[in-house]
Design a protein around this nucleic acid. Structure first.
Lengths: 144, 144
DNA sequence: TGTTCATTTGTAGTCATTACAAAATTACTT
DNA sequence: AAGTAATTTTGTAATGACTACAAATGAACA
């Protein structure tokens, strides 16, 4: 991992964090957010479901979908669309970029100043979301 | 449309352009590339298929998929993943950004200097692709 | 003309995601 | 504490984009 903005919320305050964003903190929601928070490799729906199933045996994949959609609508996570066949999720809402390694499939964060490129001719356009991602080979995969 | 890099290839030279990139210029391939070239709003598979069906009545959606995949592998178009439910295609291979309007659904191009943000700590990473897109409201939709 | 190879096409299948309604859980009221 | 309403979770069925595959078509060429 290259950068990390996750210090703004403590692990033991997830319930309060969800409540603050008008999300009733059920067990499933707490666990899903906690997992997203702890796994900064930006998991997919499937990996979230597989990881939490042992702890919550009754968990349904529909719940994972519903919960992630709820989190997105409340603005506490964002979805990452890089490959066409996989959607990943990120609990870090501070703008940053993503680097997808073609070799190992890993997804890395990196900081970038999102104001640098706003000297474009987008005058009159209201920007609500910014996404910047790169593809290529990471340090390890590139060395072959 | 905000920016336009399409001057590097003339309309009547699509066949030569495809050949130069090791693509045999069949009717379907010519028409699909021409459509992509002329429609700078970055159409989807469906809109390409719907638009070309009258001119090529036997056209199959599989052919559209196959052809786009071929074009991507030869590097003459790129795919755009902004929404999770729609993939768009772009015949402009010069790096530029995309702006997706939440209001009208329109997709706009804008230039951006992709070297500005490479002062990040990505040393040792080989970059092969860059994608930058914004979401928000365009000039017309924002004025309400 | 016949043969080989590349391209196109339609159908059937896969897989991620969603719709929907029942079941379970939580919140509220008296 | 019991009963009722509201919310959340769950499983199944349906949707829809995309792909695999093999037959059909068309082009290249001797």
């Amino acid at each position: 991992m290259i950068c990390n903005h996750y210090n703004f919320v403590k692990m033991d305050k997830i319930g309060a964090y969800l409540s603050k964003h008008e999300i009733k903190p059920s067990l499933q929601r707490l666990k899903i957010f906690e997992f997203l928070y702890n796994n900064k490799n930006h998991p997919t729906v499937d990996s979230i479901y597989t990881a939490l199933s042992p702890a919550i045996p009754t968990l349904s994949k529909t719940t994972v979908y519903n919960t992630l959609k709820l989190f997105i609508s409340k603005g506490i996570i964002r979805s990452i669309h890089i490959e066409d066949h996989e959607v990943r999720y990120d609990a870090d809402t501070i703008p940053h970029g993503h680097f997808k390694c073609i070799g190992c499939g890993g997804l890395f964060d990196f900081p970038f100043d999102h104001h640098l490129q706003l000297q474009t001719n987008l005058a009159g356009f209201q920007i609500t979301e910014e996404h910047f991602y790169l593809k290529g080979y990471c340090k390890l995969c590139g060395a072959n």
